[in-house]
Structures are given as structure tokens and as C-alpha cells.
Design a protein around this nucleic acid. Structure first.
Lengths: 316, 316
DNA sequence: TGAGGTCATGCAACCGGTTGCACAACCGGT
DNA sequence: ACCGGTTGTGCAACCGGTTGCATGACCTCA
């Protein structure tokens, strides 16, 4: 592997000049630049990132932390973040982590963090945020930049729409324990139900998995609900399939909200779909992180908060 | 941030001794070790990986490359790999990538790669393997270490079991174009069908998504099949729910194989379940990678191949 | 023509560990 | 008491870039 010094001696310049030529071409004379570039590609020179990172005190690493990878919800978010990361020349390492100590260890190794739907207390999250620039996804904590999908509003709209369509008894299936989004969604569901005179039962907490949906099904059936609004798609699928096993017809006997791709499959009208722009979340998070990295004002910055709208549609 | 030098001066030793104490405790006197450790944690010292990497000429990074994150199939594999990576003090960066050039760029930045179910030709994969130690998951290519789940055998068993249970017409739903596993699975399904006198129709290719399952449903119904063996769980869910929308009863009218968690939901007997030990795959892959990294014999090593059995169970 | 400026480049000190080698202290055996 | 062999630690040279500062060439304007 060719080094800066190799290129320098071949081109007849000093290491430092070569370094500048490569990093900030406008700082060197045009002729110098062409000579150095020629030498560089003659030798097939590639920047050694490790050395570069050491010298400038940054790792070039950003960590994307999820509480679990089982939930496909995070896939597009990660995809979006990754796409943006590549543009700004960062490596994104995806990590599954929950406890604070693991996060603290991780924080020491990277330039910045994106915490997606972190469990744990505000204090825990703040601790991490104090170590390295941190952006939150689907969670808000005072003083930290964040981007959340406004699913609560969408769920309110869904509950209201269901009531309008004649559903008098609606079940809300809560998300995993510790979920920051859950209380807001539940509240939105409650308000909407109260507003439109429907009765709402709340179930949970449940992890956002297919198996949990299966487990929740009988509890929901017992309430006599004719419509269900689950926290996550995986729950919806578990519910639907189990209803099916119980000979309860979806959506004739009971309606379950899910993503468009899922509700499409049923080919029946009047089913609400909630679609979150995962890639958008990821991209936005990464944008916030890179701007935070540039303005290393760590603690002075109040932390920008963004909310992305969530789309509600009704099949027909 | 405390450095080696800080710890050294606090403990009253030289940098080098501290470095040894931390990296190879058996090389220093016991008392020295305890003093140094005390000083280190009094200062909250953490190794600077970048510096360490530069000095030893390795990046400490391994890349886990998946063709997509939409498929939850990879989640446990990544989890398993990550767990092992942490043990051997490697960072695992999860990356979504498909084209060779992106992989080549990535390969330059890491110590080793795990390619999970890579599409692309054998030559493409070999190219990457020639750059950096590479381990394949769910794919085999001559000369590279790999670990695959023996899903083909499981699928053969499922088809045979279905035939034994009286199904005369069975549909196999193929996986994504370029999938290495697909031909083997299809062949296993064909052989089993032929052996047991059932008729097999093959459909696809389809991406391993819920939406694709939806799209495949009608095609399958048209064949009059009473049992379906899909490539992936997501496909199975799409199929089941769409059958439901078509008023085709699952599993009375048609049986669909899936994972145990899914077939459980139906609460009916005689449904085949195929369960892959994802974490095992991930762990094994990482083990192969670390051994390859130690014996940097890159090209001389023929490449160990491992096959992990896949469990088939029938609900009752 | 000389003072003040700009521009391009070199020098050398970093960044924070790792490691080969030298050296001193101490061991047991003759 | 002497010698070859361990054992534990320090010294200093790396790893491969980055960057503040100094230097000298050249330009401009009074």
C-alpha cells in the first residue's frame, strides 16, 4: 500500500503538501496539484482512514442503535440513514443495545449516535447525549435533537374514522414496555374515542412481534371489539392470523389497522392503513446528526425537534 | 479523555507497560497489573481504537453485508454475529449493498466481510474474497468459507410430509431472483414431490416480502394446490392473508408452511413449520471470520464449509 | 525602491497506542 | 562466587496522516 510519503517523494514534494493537495486542492498551486495527482494514481494511493482519523481526532463512525432488529419497522429507517451517511463519508454501524453502560462504551468509539426508539429513562438518554452528539428517532428528550413520526395523530385519525364508520367498540394494542411513543398513541386513541363517542379498550404492553399479536388476540376478542388498532405491523399480522384461526372473519367481523401493503392484501373496503415514511425518518436523523457534528456546540444547542407526518388511508 | 500516558503517569509506569498490562496481563507483574488497573479505572480510561488500529495495522471493523434489511430473516443472524463480534473485540457494521463496486469500496475499509445471501455471480463474490477475508452466509462459492442453513433438505421433508398427509397438488413459491438457495430448494421440492407421487408447481421468482406474497396468491389458487411451500416467512404471511381475502380457508382449504411462531397462530393440526437457527448462522459465520482473520492465509485456505440443520415440525 | 501582503511549500510536532530491543534484577545450579 | 536464563520494565521508533507556524518568492502600491 502506497503512503503519503511515497507519493510525496515520487512527486518531489513534502508529505504535507501532498496531504493538502488531496484534502484541499485549492490550497496548492495548479501545477503542483496535477503532478501530485499523477503520482498518486500512478501509485494507486488510497487514503488510510485510520491514520486520518487519528490525526484529526474523529473516528468517522456513527452508530445507529436499535432496541431490536426483529422489528422490520427499523429497516427502512436504517436504509435512509445509511444512504445519507454514505454521502457525508461516514460509516454507519448498526448496533442492538439497550442498557446504558453498553451505550456509554459504544459512545466512546464513535463520532455520534442515532438512538432509534430508545427505552430507558430521560436521564439515561441525556447521559449518552452528554458524551457524544446524539440524535433521537421516535423519541423526544429535552435538549437533544430528535425526529419522530407523528403516529399518535395518525392513530387518533384512525380511531375517529373507525367510529364514524360505525365501530362502537375499539381496541388499542399497546407497544413494548418502555416505549416512548406508546403513551402518546394511547392518549390520542383515547381522546379520539371520547370525542366520537366510541368505547376504547387498551391492551398491553406487548413487544412488537408476530408472536405477541397471537398472544393478544383472545384478549381482544373477549372485549367484543369490532376494530383493532395495534402498535405495530407485526402485532397486526399476529392478530389477523389468529382471528382467522378462531374463525373470526377479518375484516367482516373485525377490522385491524396496519400498513397499506398489508391492508391491500385483504381486498376489502373500509380498512385503515397507517404508513410511516421510514426512509424519511432515517434521512432526517442523519441530517440532524451531521449538522450537529459540524457545529460541535454539544451542550449549548437546545436540540432541534422535527415531526414527520404519518399518512392515513382507507381502503375501498 | 484519559490516554495511556495519563494512566502511566498516575500509576508510575511507562506507557508501554500500561499497554501491555491492558492487552496482555500475563506479561506484567501481578502487583503492577493491579496498580495499573486501579489507575485506569480511576481515570475512566478507554482504549482509543483508532490509535490502536493504526499501530497494529488493522481496522478492527468487520462488515456484515445484507442484500436488504426488509427481510426480518437477517435480524437474528445479525444478532448472533454481533454477539460474537463483541466477544472478539470487533465492530460489526451492518451494510446494505449489492453491486460489486460498492462492496469493493467497503472491503478496503474493513478487516473482513460477512456476505449474507449475496446475489451476483460467483466471480463477483470471489473478487471480494480476494481483497479481504470473507465469509458467506447462505451461499457457497468455491474457495471461500461459508455457512448455510440446510433449508433445502427441510423443504424436501415438508413436501414429502405434505404428500403423505394426502396433498396431491403442492405449490413451491420461489425466492428473489439471483438467490443462491432457491434452485437447491426448488430441486429438493421437486425430488420430494416426484418421490412421493405428488404434483408440484413452481412459482416465482418473488422478493421475500409480504407484498410479493399477496401478488403470488392468485397464481397459486389457480393451480388448485392444497398446500404451499413459500421461500420466506414474509411471503407466507402475504399468501395467507390474501387467501383469507379470497375466502379461501387456511388451513382447511389450503396449507401454508411457515415458521413455528406463525403456524402456531392458526391453532390447527397438520401444518408444517420450518425453523432456521438464525443466531446460530450468525455466530458460526463470525467464528469462521475470526479464525480466517487469525490465519491470514487468505488464498491458500480452501475455505471451510458448514451446513446447519433446519428443523421441521408439524403442528397438532 | 522598499514596505506590507499574499501565496505556496516545508518543517516538525502532534494524534494515542504498539512492539522490538536493551537492560537490570533476580533465579537456581554448579 | 559465577554464569546462563528468566522476568519485568523502560526506551524509542514506529503506524500514516494533519496542521500551526515559519520561510521565502513574488506582487502591489505608494
Amino acid at each position: 500500500m502506497a503512503t503519503l510519503a511515497d507519493v510525496a517523494s515520487l512527486a518531489g514534494y513534502n508529505k504535507s503538501t501532498v496531504s493538502r493537495a488531496l484534502a484541499r486542492p485549492e490550497m496548492v498551486a495548479p501545477e503542483t496539484l496535477t503532478r501530485i495527482l499523477a503520482a498518486a494514481d500512478q501509485l494507486g494511493y488510497v487514503l488510510n482512514r485510520t491514520a486520518s482519523q487519528l490525526a484529526r481526532g474523529r473516528t468517522g463512525l456513527a452508530a445507529f442503535v436499535v432496541p431490536t432488529l426483529e422489528n422490520a419497522f427499523f429497516a427502512p429507517i436504517i436504509g435512509g440513514a445509511q444512504a445519507r451517511a454514505a454521502e457525508s463519508d461516514l460509516h454507519l454501524t448498526v448496533t442492538v443495545a439497550s442498557d446504558v453502560t453498553a451505550l456509554e462504551r459504544l459512545a466512546a468509539q464513535v463520532d455520534g449516535l442515532i438512538l432509534a426508539a430508545p427505552r430507558g429513562t430521560d436521564a439515561d438518554v441525556t447521559t449518552i447525549g452528554a458524551i457524544k452528539p446524539t440524535v433521537l428517532v421516535d423519541r423526544e428528550v429535552p435538549g437533544l435533537p430528535s425526529v419522530v413520526a407523528d403516529t399518535a395523530t395518525a392513530i387518533g385519525a384512525v380511531v375517529e374514522g373507525l367510529a364514524v364508520r360505525g365501530h362502537r367498540r375499539i381496541a388499542y394494542i399497546g407497544g413494548p414496555p418502555g416505549s416512548w411513543q406508546d403513551p402518546g398513541r394511547e392518549a390520542a386513541a383515547r381522546n379520539a374515542a371520547a370525542r366520537s363517542g366510541a368505547e376504547l379498550t387498551v391492551h398491553g404492553p406487548f413487544p412488537a412481534t408476530f408472536a405477541a399479536g397471537v398472544a393478544a388476540a383472545d384478549e381482544v376478542l373477549a372485549t367484543g371489539a369490532t376494530a383493532v388498532v395495534p402498535y405495530a405491523t407485526a402485532l397486526a399480522l399476529g392478530l389477523m392470523l389468529t382471528f382467522r384461526g378462531r374463525d373470526v372473519h377479518v375484516p367482516d367481523d373485525i377490522v385491524v389497522s396496519a400498513e397499506t401493503t398489508v391492508t391491500h392484501a385483504l381486498g376489502a373496503p373500509g380498512i385503515p392503513a397507517i404508513d410511516v415514511d421510514g426512509e424519511g425518518l432515517g434521512r432526517t436523523a442523519m441530517d440532524l446528526l451531521t449538522t450537529t457534528l459540524l457545529t460541535t456546540a454539544l451542550l449549548t444547542d437546545p436540540g432541534e425537534r422535527r415531526r414527520l407526518p404519518v399518512k392515513v388511508t382507507w381502503s375501498r
